[in-house]
Computed example of a mutant assay.
Amino acid sequence: MVSLGAGILTLALVCLVSFILGDWSLMFKFSGIIGLISFLISGLFTGVFVSGDRVRANWTHEDSEDQDFRQQRASKLFLFGLPNLAGAILYIVLTQ
């Protein structure tokens, strides 16, 4: 839950900067980039972008501690990026 709080705090900081500068499109750009990068790295940790054969090969040659570490990092990055991506989507919905 700390990573979700950090994501919300990051989104709040981006919103504050956008408010101070008077350019709300910065919120879309920065929070969208932060959210997408977090989701992509999370996907890399979980093995979403590789074939099933590669996932099985990695699964058999990796001990459970490393698997748990990767899954925890992927979950934390996903939770960090979720509020930022939601903020970018909210900007799109409100400006349409």
Rank of each mutant, 00 (worst) to 15 (best):
W59I: 06
E62R: 14
S64Q: 13
S75K: 13
S31L: 07
S38R: 05
Q71I: 10
G43S: 05
L26W: 09
E65D: 13
L36I: 14
G43E: 03
N58M: 12
G7E: 05
I89T: 06
I92P: 04
L82F: 12
H61Q: 15
G52N: 06
M27D: 04
D66N: 08
G43P: 05
G81H: 02
V50G: 00
K29C: 10
E65K: 13
M27C: 09
V50K: 03
L40G: 04
F69D: 05
W59E: 15
F80D: 05
V55S: 06
A57P: 00
F30R: 03
L21K: 14
T46E: 11
I41L: 15
I92D: 05
G81D: 02
R56E: 13
H61D: 14
G52S: 03
G43H: 02
Q71L: 14
V17C: 07
G35S: 07
S51I: 00
D68C: 08
R54K: 08
S75E: 12
G52T: 01
L16K: 14
V50S: 01
L13D: 12
F49R: 00
Q96T: 11
N84S: 09
W59R: 15
W24V: 07
F19Y: 15
V55R: 15
A6K: 11
E65A: 13
S75D: 12
Y91V: 11
V55M: 08
I33T: 08
F78W: 11
L77R: 01
I89Q: 03
T46N: 08
I92F: 12
L82C: 07
E62Y: 08
L11H: 13
L44H: 05
V2M: 09
D53P: 00
Y91T: 04
L44G: 09
L9W: 06
A12W: 12
V48I: 06
P83D: 08
Q67H: 13
M27S: 08
S51N: 00
D53W: 00
R70M: 14
S42K: 00
F69T: 04
L90D: 06
M27V: 04
I37Y: 03
S3F: 14
Q72N: 09
L16E: 13
G47T: 01
I37G: 01
L82R: 00
S25K: 03
M1P: 05
E62A: 12
G47H: 02
S42H: 01
Y91P: 08
T60K: 15
L44C: 11
V55C: 03
L16S: 10
V48G: 01
L77C: 05
S25H: 03
G7R: 03
A86F: 09
